[in-house]
Write a protein that binds this DNA or RNA. Sequence first.
DNA 1: CGTTCAGTACGACTCCAATCGTACTGGATG
DNA 2: CATCCAGTACGATTGGAGTCGTACTGAACG
Lengths: 119, 119
Amino acid sequence: MPAAFKTLPEPPDLPEPLPEPSVADLRLEEVMGALSSSLRLTIVRKLLLESEEFDHSCHWFGLDRPKSSLTHHFKALREAGVTRQRQYGLERRSQVRVDDLNARFPGLLDLVAAWTPQP
Amino acid sequence: MPAAFKTLPEPPDLPEPLPEPSVADLRLEEVMGALSSSLRLTIVRKLLLESEEFDHSCHWFGLDRPKSSLTHHFKALREAGVTRQRQYGLERRSQVRVDDLNARFPGLLDLVAAWTPQP
DNA sequence: CGTTCAGTACGACTCCAATCGTACTGGATG
DNA sequence: CATCCAGTACGATTGGAGTCGTACTGAACG
């Protein structure tokens, strides 16, 4: 049974999510591909383990990369169905699609949470 | 708890495995990357579910690709640590490193076994 | 309404993976 | 030893992903 990662309460009046694959369209190849980089594993793991808000703008992650690179990776995660993104004014915030991923790929997120980056 | 995939009895006098990463060196990024293609998911899934021998030469899989392409993919799986390969005379046979993967990434192989290719 | 700022769009560049044809290797077999 | 055959090695090609600079957009805010 996959661990139930803490999902913080949804604020009301959420902006609509950006385009994303439906649960039925999630494909293991795509998800695996999105998680085959240490940068993206870092992003997803941090969301799983350190979220103190419902969702997080990419600034929160403290990643030392140019903005255009971050756009690229957050988009890759969303298009694979790993994360959901919502636009709040200027900010675009991400959360992990915990329920959807646990439903389709039980145990996958546990692997990400247990992952540790290479020193 | 990961499912215990049936591991057939090891014949005696096995040829030495080809070079492969040790259990401690298995990296989730690499394994995910190796499993981010439907062809390679097909290979690993078939080994998990349909093995009627200890290990299998690439001919057994019935993949309709040129030989040099198959070499490429079997090597990718071995170098990521997903499979182990042994040379039997002319044949090079593959098996999934079930125990190693279950130890380091419990549940991962269940995802592969549950995967079904896109029609 | 002008400024600020998060993030995008676009494009250039680089690099690697995938694909596959052809030639080769080296055990197996007679 | 000659042949056969599984699979490799090598190299060419292609496409896609990663990286990032620069210009742009559009909401927020005074």
